[in-house]
């Protein structure tokens, strides 16, 4: 089981790179954006992994709890709540830009947009 103690971090790294791959290699803007959100989600996993403590439970302290109850670290959770909101804000804004791009260019493929702009200038 000792090996699995780092498994979360490996998954974090794999997801980070998968997201980055989509951002760099895809020409479709929506695909790039999905890659970007996988990239951001990877960080959620990393932070929340830090909060885990053996034998612990969610940091909600009730009167009925055992005296020596161990609780997970609340701080990374708070940070990731913020990060999730930042993520949806970025996604929403980028989607609006994509919609406008479609209206102006007629395509959401980066390679085609570049061709179109070449004629313009």
């Amino acid at each position: 089981m000792e090996i699995l103690g780092l498994f979360n971090y490996w998954v974090f790294v794999l997801l980070l790179m998968t997201g980055l791959f989509a951002i760099i290699h895809k020409s479709n803007l929506i695909k790039k954006l999905i890659g970007l959100s996988i990239f951001q989600s990877a960080v959620f996993l990393f932070y929340v992994t830090l909060d885990k403590i053996d034998e612990g439970t969610a940091p909600i302290i009730r009167d009925t709890d055992l005296v020596d109850q161990i609780y997970a670290n609340p701080l990374p959770q708070v940070l990731i709540l913020t990060a999730i909101v930042v993520g949806i804000a970025t996604t929403a804004l980028a989607l609006a830009v994509i919609v406008r791009i479609k209206e102006e260019y007629g395509t959401i493929e980066e390679s085609e947009m570049r061709e179109l702009d070449r004629y313009l200038s």
Binding site: I34, F44, K52, P59, A72, I80, L81, G87, L95
Partner: peptide, 24 residues
């Protein structure tokens, strides 16, 4: 990972809202 608040948020925002926005 014992992050109930974050799980709830991710389910509502990540799986719910952002999917709807992307479909829109």
């Amino acid at each position: 990972l014992d992050a109930a608040d974050v799980a709830l948020t991710e389910a509502a925002i990540g799986a719910g809202i952002s999917t709807v926005l992307a479909l829109g």
